[in-house]
């Protein structure tokens, strides 16, 4: 049904673009006569900190200028910066892993509610900084409301209805949920698959608020899941806003407002944020 709807919506685009094409065919194209501002490369950070993980990884790359540039986008890793994470009682200097192209430490020991500061020093550039606060352990209930099959005419829609209730104490809590489904075939061999959640895997919930999640599997008919393992992240608001902005990013679409990816890095781009993850298993069979 959704494909039909999207098809209809794109009919309108088809005719707009058709007429636009005629107009463009009769119009003129040239290199713009404007002075583009000089754009120095900017350091881009992606680092996520958790209290119950001793290994913390951080990506550090550069932006690539678009104009007056002969190459396409390059993944410009920066291996020679000095990266330091500082908590209330500890400080860690990260090393560079050339295999994974990231900075890391295996000795981290941050705790819930601890504030962590990031400082990146590179040559004589202004220090790149970030800050986050480790969120509480996720508190929630998760309940399987049943398996649903909907006949949409030319295809079946199969999903589990799962209710998730936020029990964390903040007025607004941010979550990210990943689910892995396990099923076995007739010979008893067990398989696993990543499950897809309708509406995405990011949630903003008030205390004690419940959201119903449709969890999709392509295993319809006779084969259903044995169990689902849910990885629940209680995220800081920077973590949530960044991942939501990347999820909603549309690129250069004429009919869509340009979306800016959230960043909380001073003198740079990207995201430095924190999360706290636990897992829970729902047995279906």
């Amino acid at each position: 049904m959704k494909t039909i709807v999207m098809k209809i919506r794109y009919i309108s685009l088809k005719y707009f673009m058709g007429l636009l094409g005629i107009i463009i065919f009769t119009s003129c194209e040239k290199t713009a006569n404007v002075t583009m501002p000089e754009t120095d490369p900017i350091l881009v950070v992606a680092g996520f900190v958790a209290p119950n993980e001793d290994t913390i990884r951080l990506k550090l790359t550069w932006t690539t200028p678009i104009y007056y540039h002969s190459g396409w986008h390059e993944s410009n890793y920066e291996p020679n910066a000095k990266v330091v994470l500082e908590g209330s009682n500890s400080s860690y200097s990260l090393e560079y892993d050339t295999n994974g192209n990231f900075y890391y430490t295996s000795n981290a020991n941050f705790t819930v509610n601890e504030e962590v500061d990031l400082a990146i020093t590179y040559k004589d550039m202004p220090i790149v900084r970030g800050k986050c606060k480790i969120p509480e352990t996720p508190l929630f209930t998760i309940e399987n409301k049943g398996y649903q099959t909907t006949n949409n005419g030319d295809y079946y829609e199969n999903y589990y209805q799962i209710d998730f209730t936020s029990l964390n104490t903040n007025p607004i809590n941010y979550y990210r949920i990943r689910m892995i489904g396990y099923y076995s075939d007739i010979s008893g061999y067990q398989y696993s698959q990543n499950l897809w959640l309708s509406g995405g895997d990011l949630f903003e919930l008030k205390q004690n608020e419940t959201t119903s999640i449709k969890v999709y599997t392509d295993k319809g008919g006779e084969t259903t899941l044995d169990s689902v393992r849910a990885y629940v992240i209680h995220a800081s608001d920077e973590y949530y806003k960044y991942h939501l902005s990347v999820y909603n990013y549309q690129g250069d679409d004429l009919f869509v407002e340009p979306s800016l990816i959230y960043d909380n890095i001073e003198n740079g781009l990207g995201n430095f944020s924190a999360y706290n993850m636990v897992s829970d298993t729902l047995i279906f069979k």
Binding site: P37, K59, G100, F102
Partner: peptide
């Protein structure tokens, strides 16, 4: 737009165990 970059996101747990070290922990999009 005046620049492009990799917007890396957190990749918490995946069944794709064959991934390289780089993409096991981060997902990437331009």
């Amino acid at each position: 737009a005046n620049s492009t970059y990799n917007a890396y996101t957190h990749n918490p747990n995946s069944t794709n165990n064959g991934m390289s070290n780089e993409y096991k922990y981060f997902s990437s999009s331009y």
